[in-house]
Design a protein around this nucleic acid. Sequence first.
DNA 1: TCTCACGTGGACCGCGGGGTCCGCATCACT
DNA 2: AGTGATGCGGACCCCGCGGTCCACGTGAGA
Lengths: 191, 191
Amino acid sequence: MTEPKPLRADARRNRARVLDAAEVVFAAKGTSATTEEVAREAGVGVGTLFRHFPTKEALLEAVLFDRVRRFADEAELVAAADKPGEVFYTFLTSWVEMSSAKNAYGDALAAAGVEIPKPPSIAGIRVLETLATVLSRAQDAGAVRKDISVDELIPVIIGASRAAEHVGGDTELRDRTISVMLDSLRPRVGS
Amino acid sequence: MTEPKPLRADARRNRARVLDAAEVVFAAKGTSATTEEVAREAGVGVGTLFRHFPTKEALLEAVLFDRVRRFADEAELVAAADKPGEVFYTFLTSWVEMSSAKNAYGDALAAAGVEIPKPPSIAGIRVLETLATVLSRAQDAGAVRKDISVDELIPVIIGASRAAEHVGGDTELRDRTISVMLDSLRPRVGS
DNA sequence: TCTCACGTGGACCGCGGGGTCCGCATCACT
DNA sequence: AGTGATGCGGACCCCGCGGTCCACGTGAGA
């Protein structure tokens, strides 16, 4: 059912432009940025924007989706490397850095009453699987305490993102903060 | 200058009502809740609300302020106790739990472009001083790693709050998460 | 109880932003 | 090049929300 409909060349171009612009604008000015602003950044009329994304919410979703997807790809590559411990912390750090921005989108959706679990499933699940893999490998290698599950890991990541977000411009302090927070995952003396 | 102006009895009552209502409503439905909603909850007209708080922002500020002040009082009591390590973690835990809600207000203000440092100074400074005291005492007692400063502690707290916030209803998971995150502050093997 | 200043409530206003609409441009197939 | 279909743009509509205003109620000093 619902055949994909081939879509004209310029249309595809514009869609991509809008998506990129949205990512930039929302990252810079928060999700409360105006649809018109996004359209301007994309060099496109609002009408065009709404043609591709019937609602602002849908646009937010699309951006979020896109990020997660791209990140999942990267993550799979990293997961394939050896040095499980190193991989784990690198992975988390980059996730944290990425989601400093991403969380805002999630929030916006949540605030708008959208059921988050629904859309990110396809891309999201893959990330979670990857995360679980990386985690258990790191645990086997003794780089991460054993009494941590993915369920607990996720809040920690989110928390770290928020902390990073809060610190803002001061990158030196931010790095230190992230590092401190991720330290909570390292094995303790008696474990 | 600007003498306090004694303010009528019912006026004081209404002001308090609005403040309480605001706290409840904003906590429940987020800071995007409507001024009218707050007014209804307070059993008051919007006019009254705006008489006491000339702007929604001002109301947010007032609520935030109030919370911080109350918390600072509590904190001072706790800080006076002995057992520095225990105090430290108790303190942080309760702070984290409290600020799961409070952060939202801070965010809202930040988003609105209000200079945060300005208003919370009076109440805020006191908390920071208390925090510094508690921290250094706990460090002296060996309950907290020495290479942590208040500057880093704050993001960690915020992060933990956010994580807690994210977990939401599942209190068991939330407690575990907070505990894991605060573990990052405990002294490490070689320190 | 009389009085009036202080406080109240909610109808009302203006604006900002999401979403629509339609005349015009552009694409793509011949 | 000709021509229909597919997109484009941005003026426009609508409504939700912060904030105002003023006729009315009510507290408090005489």
